[in-house]
């Protein structure tokens, strides 16, 4: 049974120059215990996807479709209901740790704040819980460190604090948006090891453009291109045998795998081709790719791909 089942989710932004579609008819489900990565180019709508599940998009966003969480459509939940869900049931580690923390509160107070909001922890129990969380994330001298302000920590430490905050209320689902971006190679490797161990028995939606992060953490991976999911499957199968030409191109762009970029650029939102959206850049394109829009189809065990070659 899916913990979160998203059906036909579309998101558009109203702007002065008209409506800009960003996500298009996304169907996507996460079962309890799965760790699913959503990968794709910068600007392809990964953050918007996470934000729509959290219902944190700005007011110029138009969302349609449904997102069933524990049988309830959170896209139609009231703001009061959402406050019960956000942080407590579904917690988000947002992109850019420099801005995600409140600069004028000590990190101890920030973690305590979310605990007070959603649990019955108070007083000494509260402090014990903050210390336990910091310790579980490998932060040494927690008593001393909880008195510090965010700017006194390095990027890697701030990322750990954000993870601690997200785990504070033992949520059913954690959404992590680019948890390793901006971290250097050594700190990234450390953070990945840590995330791997704390997320072991949890349900995770991982948003990232970094394939190393996805393959380290995710049991399943969905590839987003031009507002659509173009491929989905178990992470290691998908990376070993990518089916969609875009995924194949993405892997071939890696510095260790040839460093061959995909020609051209992904289309701007609102200017997608009529047929297959990848067609202008695809080296396997056929005549009908120009006019026929492929749908996301099951292919073999557990995999899905949106490409006419597999029809």
């Amino acid at each position: 049974m899916s913990l979160l089942a998203i059906a036909d989710l579309s998101v558009q932004f109203e702007s002065r120059s008209g409506t800009v579609p960003v996500l298009d008819h996304i169907d996507f489900a996460i079962n309890t215990g799965e760790r699913v990565a959503l990968i794709g180019e910068s600007g392809c709508g990964k953050t918007v996807f996470g934000m729509s599940v959290m219902r944190l998009l700005p007011s110029n966003a138009r969302i349609t479709g449904s997102a069933l969480y524990a049988g309830r459509d959170i896209l139609r939940a009231s703001e009061r209901e959402m406050q019960q869900i956000r942080g407590k049931k579904i917690a988000m580690i947002s992109q850019n740790s420099a801005f995600a923390l409140n600069p004028v509160l000590t990190v101890g107070d920030q973690i305590a704040e979310s605990l007070t909001l959603h649990t019955s922890c108070r007083g000494e129990g509260l402090e014990r819980e903050v210390i336990r969380l910091l310790t579980s994330l490998g932060i040494e001298r927690p008593k001393e460190n909880m008195q510090k302000y965010p700017h006194e920590f390095s990027g890697g430490m701030r990322e750990r604090i954000l993870i601690a905050m997200a785990l504070a209320c033992n949520p059913d689902l954690v959404i992590a948006d680019e948890p390793t971006s901006g971290l250097d190679a050594l700190v990234k490797a450390q953070t990945l090891r840590l995330l791997k161990s704390v997320m072991q028995d949890r349900t995770l939606l991982l948003i990232t453009h970094d394939l190393g992060t996805a393959s380290a953490l995710a049991s399943h991976t969905a590839v987003l291109y031009a507002g659509e999911i173009v491929e989905y499957g178990p992470t290691h199968e998908l990376f070993r045998h990518p089916m969609h030409p875009y995924t194949q191109g993405l892997l071939a762009s890696s510095p260790s795998a040839g460093f061959h970029p995909i020609p051209g650029m992904s289309p701007a939102p609102g200017q997608v081709p009529h047929g297959c959206r990848f067609c202008p850049r695809c080296s396997s394109a056929m005549d009908r790719c120009n006019s026929t829009h492929p749908s996301l189809k099951k292919s073999g065990n557990n995999r899905q791909v949106r490409c006419l070659r597999y029809d």
């Binding site: 990968i39 794709g40 180019e41 910068s42 971006s181 901006g182 453009h209 970094d210 394939l211 191109g249 993405l250 892997l251 762009s253 890696s254 510095p255 460093f259 061959h260 970029p261 995909i262």
Partner: peptide
């Protein structure tokens, strides 16, 4: 290219 994905990184660097 620290903030960019692999394909864009490869494009810009080439």
């Amino acid at each position: 290219t620290a903030a960019l994905d692999l394909s864009v990184q490869a494009q810009i660097l080439s």
